[in-house]
C-alpha cells in the first residue's frame, strides 16, 4: 500500500497522538467526576437495596411481622430463619426472627413477598465488622435498623414508591386491614 503525503505528515508529526493528548489536556480543565469516597459520600437513591430492617408498627410499637414464613420460603439464599410458637390466645408468636446478612444476595424477594409490609431493605450499605456473629441480625437488631434508617417519612415513601399499592400505605396501616379477613 502506497503512503500518501497526508499519511506521511500524520506519521511524522504524531498527529493522532497529539489529538489524544489534546483531549486529555482538555479534560484537565473540566470539573472532576470522581468522589473522594470516605470523605465525600453520595446518598443512595431512594429504594436502594442494602441492610435489612423489620418494620416497627406505629399502632403497637412492635414488629409488624406475624411469622407466616413466606419470606423465608421465597429467599433464594435461605438466609432468613423464623421460629414461632403458639401464644396464650392461640395467636402465633414470633420468638426469633434472624437474618444471616452474609448469605443474603439482596434480591429483595422477601420485601416483594411479605403480605404485611413487615420487612424492608434500608439504604444503609456501609456496615462492616470483625466477626461473623456481628452479621447475624436478630429481631431486636432488625427493629433497631428500622428506627435508625427508615423511621418517619422515609419508610413511608419507601413502601409507597417501590413496594406498596399506589393508593394505600401498607407499612403504616393497621394490621387488620392488611390481614385479608379472618380466614
Amino acid at each position: 500500500m502506497k503512503m500518501t503525503f497526508n499519511d506521511f505528515i500524520k506519521k511524522v508529526f504524531f498527529v493522532e497522538i497529539a489529538k489524544g493528548l489534546a483531549l486529555t489536556m482538555k479534560e484537565l480543565f473540566t470539573p472532576a467526576v470522581t468522589r473522594q469516597y470516605p470523605k465525600e459520600k453520595r446518598n443512595p437513591f431512594p429504594g436502594a437495596r442494602a441492610l435489612h430492617a423489620l418494620v416497627r408498627s406505629d399502632v403497637t410499637g412492635e414488629a409488624k411481622c406475624v411469622g407466616c414464613g413466606l419470606c423465608a420460603a421465597v429467599c433464594p439464599s435461605k438466609c432468613i430463619h423464623i421460629y414461632t410458637t403458639e401464644g396464650s390466645d392461640t395467636m402465633k408468636v414470633v420468638n426469633r426472627y434472624e437474618i444471616d446478612v452474609l448469605r443474603c444476595v439482596f434480591c429483595a424477594f422477601c420485601v416483594e413477598a411479605c403480605p404485611f409490609g413487615a420487612i424492608a431493605l434500608t439504604d444503609h450499605f456501609e456496615y462492616s465488622g470483625y466477626s461473623r456473629e456481628e452479621f447475624h441480625y436478630t429481631k431486636e437488631r432488625l427493629l433497631e435498623n428500622w428506627d435508625k434508617y427508615m423511621a418517619g417519612d422515609k419508610g413511608k415513601i419507601y413502601f409507597e414508591r417501590f413496594w406498596g399499592p399506589k393508593e394505600k400505605d401498607i407499612a403504616h396501616s393497621k394490621p387488620s386491614v392488611a390481614a385479608g379477613g379472618g380466614a
Partner: peptide, 19 residues
C-alpha cells in the same frame, strides 16, 4: 400488591407461587 392485600384468593395465589 393491592390485590394481595385486599382479597383472599390473591393472597393464597401469592403464597403458592412463592413457595
Amino acid at each position: 400488591k393491592e390485590r394481595v392485600l385486599n382479597d383472599m384468593e390473591h393472597l393464597v395465589q401469592q403464597f403458592i407461587l412463592m413457595t
